[in-house]
Nucleic acid binder design. Structure first.
Lengths: 115, 115
DNA sequence: ACGGTGCGCAACCGGATAGTTGCACGTTTC
DNA sequence: GAAACGTGCAACTATCCGGTTGCGCACCGT
């Protein structure tokens, strides 16, 4: 496992795992989709288009917030959430490194065969 | 939640969530990193660089296999696992769509302010 | 000031999950 | 053929997670 994957340190890998885990739920993925439009939305708004309880949505939002995917700002009596695209971009870059490493490995294999 | 995010159908979202969840674990992320080099490795090999039991690694590999991230091929007495980059590439594309949607929203907002 | 709305907190439940241990079985290897 | 190696299967535990319900509080409009 220490053979120099496309990851950084183990601490960084833990961070990545946390963000992946936060996205590994259908409801939360739907929340991200709803917030990807750029507009900040309240918990009730986000709940209205879901089948589950407001409390459940709240918990999911806290998970997303814990992963840094989403930020919360209190405005009057409502909590408005908005997306923070940075962790998502970082995850995308990480997956890109994995794919790249894979492609390079394939290229090496092919070169070996052709030699 | 039905407001046309960057996702496809709900079924597709479920699939994405499954792959995200599979990657949402430090140990499994380490396994992916170890396999991203292109070489197929046996369970014992993958266990040797880990702190947990072979059984635990086996379970993790089954989870990755269930998500389609990894394939298993029996070879003699050992099970050799290799990476399948397709789901990872799909996830990367998905995150790209989210980021793109976000960027477009930002651009619209900026245009609105400048008008 | 009072009713409705939006939230947060806490307790609780059932199911999934990460991890372990123990054992049995096929496969090499000597 | 016997020892060693690599796996698979099963049981069991502890913990986490998604979801609910109930309650209390702050805030807004009229």
């Amino acid at each position: 496992m220490s053979r120099a994957g496309p990851d950084g340190s183990a601490a960084r890998r833990r961070q990545h795992a946390a963000v992946f885990a936060a996205l590994g739920d259908e409801t939360r993925l739907a929340l991200v989709a709803a917030l990807s439009g750029g507009a900040a939305r309240s918990i009730s708004q986000l709940t209205s288009t879901s089948r589950v309880t407001r409390q459940a949505i709240t918990k999911h939002l806290r998970v997303l917030e814990g992963a840094g995917i989403v930020r919360c700002a209190r405005s009057g009596r409502e909590s408005r959430f908005e997306l923070d695209p940075a962790p998502i971009a970082e995850l995308r870059a990480y997956l890109g490194r994995v794919s790249e490493q894979w492609d390079q490995a394939l290229a090496r294999l092919r070169a070996l065969v052709e030699s």
